[in-house]
């Protein structure tokens, strides 16, 4: 009797391990092993053509810190992150609050769909679309500016070294704001209605309610969305790659695009691995800081 119970207890202990085994295996094969391999590769100099790798130690990393393009790319990523946090996190929260407001109850579902549609469109299609918007000769944006009498503000948005990165960032905001808004809507719907009712009775206005109830109540979602947005900004690839390919010059280069170009366009696989390692370190640091600051995972 006693023996049997112990057997069952031991088997029970094994079962959870079996359940997590497949995902552990997948994570290991597709994430952790490549990660380690990438780190290992960054100590070698090789191209896709060459069957042999030449050990070069830390020279790829030395080159990395002397590379002006890496600096430009990093600054662009930071710009991406800052603007994305402002629009996708701060503005999306405001948007979500408005959509959840009683005033908009009737049309909110429709607006939610409208804001969410860009998220579902393939990024290549969107990039193509925005190429037309930014086109210097017949683009919507320049035509619109001329129409309202601001013709002197028209520039070739993607062809100008100072505006290109902002033009790329703007497209991202248009695409992603719906997604973050959706996440905030879910979080806001979970806030107990009583809080708002009590605030109403106390005479708190909409703005006061937003800062005193909504913001603290969605704190958790706020940090998660911030994490998604910032790491996403550090990894951004599709948008600049399709719209400008990092150009003109290197003005709209991001770290991922630079990594890709080093690896597959210029055949410096080792150096590309070093850039990839840099991206990993940067995103890991941001993620750690945010997790530490927010205390995500702990119940309040």
């Amino acid at each position: 009797m006693k023996e049997g119970a112990r057997m069952i207890a031991r088997r029970n202990r094994m079962i959870p391990a079996l359940f997590i085994l497949p995902s552990l295996l997948f994570l290991g094969i597709f994430i952790y092993i490549p990660l380690v391999q990438n780190f290992y590769n960054s100590f070698f100099d090789f191209s896709v053509f060459s069957p042999t790798k030449e050990y070069v130690g830390f020279s790829a990393f030395e080159q990395l810190f002397a590379d002006k393009v890496v600096m430009t790319a990093f600054i662009n990523n930071v710009k991406y992150a800052i603007i994305s946090v402002i629009f996708q996190v701060a503005f999306a929260l405001v948007l979500a609050t408005i959509l959840e407001d009683k005033l908009f109850r009737r049309i909110a579902p429709m607006l939610r769909v409208i804001y969410f549609i860009p998220v579902m469109i393939s990024i290549s299609v969107i990039a193509l679309l925005f190429n037309f918007v930014y086109n210097p000769q017949m683009g919507l944006l320049n035509s619109f500016l001329e129409l309202i009498g601001l013709g002197n503000l028209t520039v070739p948005w993607l062809g100008n070294a100072t505006t290109s990165i902002y033009a790329v960032i703007a497209m991202s905001q248009w695409q992603s704001i719906g997604f973050i808004t959706m996440l905030f809507i879910v979080a806001i719907q979970k806030i107990p209605k009583e809080l708002y009712e009590a605030a109403n009775i106390d005479g708190a206005g909409k703005i006061r309610q937003f800062f005193s109830i909504t913001v603290p109540q969605v704190k958790e979602a706020l940090f998660v969305n911030m994490l998604i947005t910032i790491t996403g900004s550090m990894l951004v690839f599709n948008e600049p790659y399709i719209l400008t390919n990092g150009g003109p010059g290197t003005s709209s280069m991001t770290l991922s695009v630079y990594m890709y170009q080093q690896g597959f366009f210029k055949d410096n696989m080792g150096y590309a691995s070093a850039v990839a390692t840099l991206i990993f370190v940067v995103t890991a640091i941001f993620a750690l800081i945010q997790i530490k600051v927010s205390g995500t995972g702990k119940d309040e």
Binding site: G159, N160, A161, G246, G247, P248, G249, T250, S251, Q261, F265, K266, D267, N268
Partner: peptide
């Protein structure tokens, strides 16, 4: 070599926009 060509080509873009 493609690395050299790339510097010239991107440099060309930067020249046209007055960045280098």
């Amino acid at each position: 070599n493609i690395n050299v060509a790339d510097i010239f080509m991107r440099g060309g873009q930067s020249l046209a926009t007055g960045q280098t």
